[in-house]
Design a protein around this nucleic acid. Sequence first.
DNA 1: CGCCAGGTGCTGA
DNA 2: TCAGCACATGGC
Length: 282
Amino acid sequence: MTLGSGQVFRWKSRGAKRFCGVLGRSVFFLQQNLLLLHAQADLPADELRLRVQYFLRSGEDWPGLWKSVDVDPRIHAALSATRGLRILKQDPWESLASFIASSNNNIVRIEGMIDRLCRAFGAAIPHRGEIHFAFPRPESLSQLHPDALRRIGFGYRAPYLVEAARQVDSGEIPLQAIARMPYAQARETLLKVEGVGDKVVDCVLLFGFGHFEAFPVDVWVSRIMRKLYFRNRKVPDRKVRTFARRHFGPRCGLAQQALFHAARCELLEPNLPGVHGASMDG
DNA sequence: CGCCAGGTGCTGA
DNA sequence: TCAGCACATGGC
């Protein structure tokens, strides 16, 4: 559920509860068997375990984290429907580049764009007879003409991504330093990147930098929040964000991901408890 | 054809 | 601050 919840765009299902993806320069296979997770990669066993635990944030107290945002019956329904979900620890550059590509776009096409980006400009990684690809480094993408990205379907986002790569490569956008900044300052800094607005920046801060107070408001979250908390009235994204931060508290980002996944996969319908309570009227 | 998708930048009230 | 609009692309 976590790997398919729109946080990451290039982990591929390879059978029942089995996924394949690339972390850094290594190909990983993850297979879930009930409460056990089997991980495979061409790495020493101890390093393999550490890398997977880091990516999955296995050191966190997940039951405690989810409990901290379980503040009312409506979010409780979403949390129940997404039990086991986690917030991943993504590479900051990959999350920044990926979510620049995500704007006004759908997940299937985002996945295709990122896949073509990695095939064209990422380092090849041979693995058991197959060729996988690393995510392209900023210094590679910064050299491109935007047309090279337009040709693989990036559309009007092409110059945004090239420019972002240049800003990261030059140190103008210092990801290393941003990782040590508090949420508000990191947000302000990343917003200077063209193509990064109020929603994308919160995705990057939540999935790439571990700021659980980020609450990305996309069309799905906007809809479900309107339904659950605003009597179905249209509400500016900014208001949804500030309400969520106040209502769910400093881990509101977790509530956001549960709501996003539940809404997108229709896990709450029917009989969704709204502001008027559950009702069966048609 | 029109609408939608993990929106953003720009413009004008 | 807010709404309205253009913006590439592909699926339906």
